[in-house]
Simulated assay, not measured.
Amino acid sequence: METTKQQQALLDYLEKHQDTHGIMPSQREIQKYFGFASRNAVPKHLSALEKKGLLSRANHLARSLRLPKKITPKNFLSIPLLGSIPAGYAETQEEEHEHTLTIDLEMLQLPHKARLFALEVRGDSMINAGILNGDRVILEQSEAYHGDIVAALIDGESTLKRLIIEHGKSFLKAENHNYPDILPLEELSIQGVFRALFRVHKK
């Protein structure tokens, strides 16, 4: 969105004042800072910024002004997209690292230090949990608990299921009644815990 030099100067002042003092300046402070002869000049400039979507406010008081949320590079993280994972019957999988997926950590409410990766879902065993074929799931390498949806390696084969822990024993449960529970014969290890998903709507 294009702005005039005066509008950009006003935006810069509002941002600096908020960062320094924790609140927005009053209209009188804005008038004094820019040396406007008339107080009517302040609401006029503020209104112009509102119309451009560069400013919002709950009422007509200057201290209710809100700047749009800044999108900064530190909020974004590129994570590896490690191929696909069956959401059906467990299958032997070879890890692929062909692509990356850029995510907004703040929007997804994920910590910056989280060890994250993504996988593309193949199958329909998790549809009752809202995870569909073709979705890309974001997973964190962290400790898993009863009820978590996990990417698991069970007896050498990978799958995406819900982790169930009962009476000290762990097994995997689908979110689709057409698939049976999967009990490990020898080994069950958790590769990642489900945190979020991305879905692309295809025409």
Rank of each mutant, 00 (worst) to 15 (best):
G156L: 07
P43D: 01
L172M: 08
H167N: 15
N128E: 15
A114F: 09
L65K: 06
A41F: 01
L197D: 00
V150N: 08
L81C: 10
A90T: 04
D155T: 01
N40H: 13
S38G: 00
P184S: 02
I71T: 11
Q6D: 06
E94Y: 09
L49I: 11
G35P: 04
L119E: 00
A152V: 07
H99A: 14
Q27Y: 06
L197C: 08
D19R: 15
K52D: 05
L77G: 01
Y89G: 02
E186N: 04
Y13H: 14
L119Y: 08
K161D: 05
K16S: 14
F76A: 01
V200W: 10
D135H: 12
A114C: 04
L132I: 05
P111Y: 08
K51Q: 15
L132G: 00
L49C: 05
L67H: 06
F36T: 04
Q31W: 04
I164Q: 09
R136M: 14
T159D: 06
L11W: 04
D124T: 12
A37G: 04
D124Q: 09
N59G: 10
K70L: 08
G168A: 14
K16I: 03
L55F: 03
K203G: 13
L77I: 03
P86S: 12
I190V: 06
P180N: 08
A58H: 05
M107D: 11
